[in-house]
Design a protein around this nucleic acid. Structure first.
Length: 450
DNA sequence: AAGCGCCACAACCGCATAGAT
DNA sequence: TATCTATGCGGTTGTGGCGCT
């Protein structure tokens, strides 16, 4: 493929944009939207290629861009996210509303890398430089994986190489990166539009644990800096964008631990008490059970049973349940998903549905089913579906990060329900090499208590 | 004041991939 | 299924500003 076709055209301007060009592009997109980028320059009267217009819009003209220097909290978050996501700038940018991938990339290359080195941390591996230098003495095979760590190999290599964490390295980033993990969620609680990714910035705690320090499910031990890159946060956020669990104060705990990741989520405060008096929720996200769902929706069916698998990897089902555990019509605003794989059989989850979903469930049971006769949701839409929990991190102090559940939420996290058998962890870990295609494929397994 | 180097930022380039045909 | 187009992403380069000598 290579170069975009429009780039072959002659006499297209290159280089810096003039204010006049900016005006033309801004006016055009403001009035008409960008639509097909390749047609934008022509319609807007610009001698630029569509690609250039798109970039200019995204990186400079977009009205929701945050201008100005990065705050310390933003920088810390970028470092934390980079440790997880590597050079996936767009995914990192997704956690920082108003910031572009280009901006973050530039910041990283010009400033943050340097800062990390000054702190004795290798910016590629996020390990102490001393360790990295020792690694360099090792055979080139191992070295090679580190060299490309910038593009996702971080998480891949970590996934392939379970925890050999010394206490020092476990605490490394937590200590060296002040835990002012700060970002803004793109979850939109108030607007049910699934496409709106930018309006609100609720707060959640994000607990991420790298390498099994949270086997006991004690979130007090989870550190955001210890997370391993199992999840495209962006994708996780999509779910909340459309309302599911859009609890701005939801603490999340990613516990890739020995294999999979576990998200402990308090879903309470996004749901009004009368609708969902008390729900204890825990969510397991595993990169190992990859569902590339063509999820179907069906109303008037009390069971929510999505999950058929596309690639034969994993199925899961969901049913609406009442708080006492019996299946209900969903008006209690809780829904239970249950995996139908061996791996996840023992784990079910109930969570509350936020407004957008609740509305559907109240009178009509929402059914997700992988059957052909139902309306299909494409994979890309699935990423925006309510079946994914949203995550966000925002303005958390180091203290709050370690809080398990905010007291004011009134939720109780039943840790017992979140326990995975060690064999499950192992199984998941073995399967984690599936996590190769930029985290596009993953599954959600849920555990529940009421 | 001129030259130089460094830095931050903007933009480009090439590749990957999804969707359409 | 193969091919083409459009888009998105990440790496790299270009450019202007600033400080130092």
């Amino acid at each position: 493929m290579g170069r975009h076709s429009c780039c072959y055209k002659q006499k297209l301007r290159k280089g810096l944009w003039s204010p006049e060009e900016d005006d033309k592009l801004l006016n055009y997109i403001t009035k008409h939207g960008h639509g097909c980028w390749s047609s934008v320059p022509k319609l807007a009267g610009l001698q630029r290629c569509g690609k250039s217009c798109r970039l200019r819009w995204i990186n400079y003209l977009r009205p929701d861009l945050k201008r100005g220097a990065f705050s310390q909290q933003e920088e810390n978050l970028i470092i934390e996210l980079h440790a997880v996501l590597g050079n996936r700038w767009s995914q990192i940018a997704a956690q920082l509303p108003g910031r572009t991938d280009n901006e973050i990339k530039n910041l990283w290359n010009s400033s943050l890398k340097k800062k990390l080195r000054q702190r004795g941390i290798d910016p590629n591996t996020h390990k102490p430089l001393s360790e990295v230098e020792n690694d360099k003495d090792k055979p080139p095979t191992a070295d090679k994986s580190n060299q490309k760590a910038s593009v996702g190999s971080n998480e891949l290599s970590l996934a392939a190489e379970p925890p050999k964490l010394k206490p020092s390295s476990m605490s490394m980033s937590a200590e060296r990166y002040p835990l002012e993990v700060s970002s803004s969620s793109r979850i939109n609680n108030s607007n049910s539009s699934s496409s709106n990714l930018t309006n609100t910035t609720p707060t959640q705690d994000l607990f991420l644990d790298r390498f099994g320090t949270c086997h006991d499910n004690s979130m007090a031990n989870c550190r955001p800096s210890d997370m391993v890159g199992f999840f495209p946060f962006q994708q996780l956020n999509y779910g909340a964008n459309i309302g599911l669990s859009a609890n701005p104060n939801t603490p999340l705990c990613f516990i890739p631990s020995s294999s999979s990741s576990q998200v402990m989520s308090d879903l309470n405060s996004s749901i009004t008490p009368p609708m969902l008096p008390s729900v204890t929720s825990s969510i397991f996200l595993t990169p190992t059970h990859i569902v590339k769902p063509t999820v179907s929706l069906q109303s008037n069916n009390p069971s929510v049973s999505s999950g058929h698998d596309i690639d034969g990897v994993h199925n899961w089902e969901a049913s609406t349940f009442s708080n006492n555990g019996s299946k209900s019509n969903g008006s209690n605003n809780s829904i239970q998903l249950q995996s139908n794989t061996n791996f996840l059989d023992s784990n079910t989850l109930t969570w509350g549905l936020a407004e957008t979903v609740k509305a559907d469930i109240k009178d009509n049971h929402v059914s997700l089913q992988g059957q052909g006769e139902q309306e299909e949701i494409k994979w890309s839409e699935y990423l925006n579906s309510p079946f994914l929990l949203g995550t966000s991190v925002q303005n958390q102090t180091s203290q709050s990060i370690y809080n398990e559940v905010k007291p004011e939420t009134g939720f109780i996290t039943d840790e017992s329900s979140t326990t995975w058998h060690h064999s499950q962890h192992q199984q998941a870990f073995q399967a984690s090499d599936i996590y190769t295609k930029d985290l596009q494929r993953f599954s959600v397994a849920f555990g529940q208590t009421l």
